[in-house]
């Protein structure tokens, strides 16, 4: 019972960390960034390199953020910017980039499955249940990410301008807001978050050139169900992630793998705005 509750909580935290970057980009730019999976892979390899260099595993997070941000800048400038008027094409082009990133990593690191060192080992005792310390640590980490992003959006001039662009881009431009710059910065931040998410999941899975892709579809579905709100993303992750855990333990792990995608598709069929307010 307690183990299951912890499973739900930690699964939701992982999903939240994985989907925030995608949500940010979708909210501001109305574009689904299919390079998200590739950028996560990039973050996973940042963790691997950190391990190989013998550095503190926590350092992988800033390293991943840096790699992701730089890649994101290049992607926004050369690929995404010409495609704002063609959102379906943007999905395809960013998917192509995911392939490119995967192949570049394969050429550099080989195709094999590798493992990065986890920043936390062992288990913790929670209400008499011993549970993976790292999975538990992901809950505060996800909350910090969410809180940091909320603070950025709610508490800074850039955040205010970003929210303005999300709500009404024409109006924002008419008030002197450089929406092109806001988009650029948003994509950069979203890419950095994707790479951080890639680092965060490495202790739970292996590091390989295709590691980000399986996460992509679930993250994408969660974002569609959540609209552009960080709060409704939290709700979606808890509800759909919880459903995934329950189906996996009580029915079958294979069906569990489908739960998020299928439930999200059905929710959107009944309520096109998903968990978003309006």
């Amino acid at each position: 019972m307690i183990a299951q509750a912890l499973d739900i909580l930690t699964t939701a935290a992982i999903l939240y960390a994985v989907a925030t970057g995608l949500l940010l980009v979708f909210g501001v730019m109305k574009i689904i960034n299919f390079a998200h999976g590739g950028l996560m892979t990039l973050g996973g390899y940042a963790a691997l390199v950190t391990t190989q260099l013998g550095l503190n595993p926590w350092l992988a997070i800033p390293a991943a953020a840096l790699f992701g941000a730089v890649a994101g800048m290049a992607i926004e400038r050369f690929v995404v910017r010409p495609l704002y008027a063609r959102p379906l094409d943007a999905i395809l082009a960013t998917w192509g980039l995911s392939i490119v990133i995967g192949q570049l990593i394969t050429i550099a690191f080989g195709r094999g499955v590798q493992f990065a060192q986890a920043p936390l080992d062992g288990t913790l005792d929670v209400f008499g249940e011993s549970y993976s310390a790292y999975r538990l640590a992901l809950v505060p980490i996800a909350l910090i990410l969410g809180a940091g992003l909320t603070a950025l959006l709610q508490g800074t001039r850039l955040g205010l301008e970003t929210r303005a662009v999300i709500m009404n881009e024409d109006l924002a431009r008419g008030l002197g807001i450089n929406s092109g710059l806001v988009r650029f910065l948003t994509f950069t931040l979203g890419s950095a978050l994707a790479a951080i998410a890639g680092t965060l999941i490495t202790p739970l899975s292996s590091v390989d050139p295709g590691m980000g892709v399986p996460w992509l579809v679930n993250a994408f579905m969660l974002v569609l169900v959540s609209g552009a709100s960080l709060v409704s993303l939290l709700v979606s992750c808890l509800v759909l992630g919880g459903a995934q855990v329950l189906v996996s333990t009580h029915l079958s792990p294979v069906l569990g793998g489908l739960t998020i995608a299928v439930l999200a598709a059905i929710i959107l069929r009944i309520r096109p705005q998903g968990f978003a307010r309006d």
């Binding site: 924002a172 431009r173 008030l175 450089n178």
Partner: peptide, 12 residues
């Protein structure tokens, strides 16, 4: 572009 026009001191 519109934001640059606005920054010239034009309110709309």
């Amino acid at each position: 572009p519109p934001y640059a026009v606005a920054r010239l001191g034009v309110g709309y």
